[in-house]
Amino acid sequence: MKAFTALTAAELRLLSRDPASLFFMVAFPLMLLVLKRGDGGAVPGYLAMIAAIGGMGALPGLLASYRERKVLKRLATTPISPILLLGAQLVSQVAAGLAGSALLVVVTVAVFGARAPGDVLMLTAAFLLCSVMACALGFVIAAVVRNTRGASLIGMLVMFPMIFLSGAAVPRKALPGSLRQIGDFLPLTPAVEALGGAWSGTAVPFPLLILAGIIVAATATGAALFRWE
């Protein structure tokens, strides 16, 4: 436990020193909110976006660089299990996303006077599932693509279309029919639905179940394909 805490604390500190992560997980969603004149209806999508940026935009490149620069190998010579490092990465990405999300929600309600989320507990649970799912997908990318630049690039290529087609960045209603159909098959779509339901206070168990299923499938795939060096 002491080792895990130390690892997670170090990872969080590193994340807080990364200007790109800070910008995309904290400042960027706030900017979008301002552009939307504080429209609370857009916020659940932005929460999904924060999770996607951390898990798919940042995590694959980070894991691949740890492998390429033999950070993983060095840690593998210590008593910690390498799994612990992946766990610390997950916890720190989720925690950072949660902090960015909490800030966004508070600003939406306190500054722009939007209606408070209908079910805060459910919203938190939906965000946690969404964030863990994004990290699990990022883990699969890092398992399939071996070098750092490739993993970062593929992460971005997967993330950007997904946040536009899943309803995270723009409402799906605004998309042409064929693009909306693609969105039906993207893992971030149920995430946006779950967050949207919790925001308005209606129970949406089905999207949450889908998220849980994706987490299990992606983690198993990642674990089977991931190479430590």
Partner: peptide, 20 residues
Amino acid sequence: SSLPERIKVAEALRMFGAFY
């Protein structure tokens, strides 16, 4: 082998110390 670029010397020593 190496460490994350942004980790500081004292942090690395403290973290590794916590592993043993």
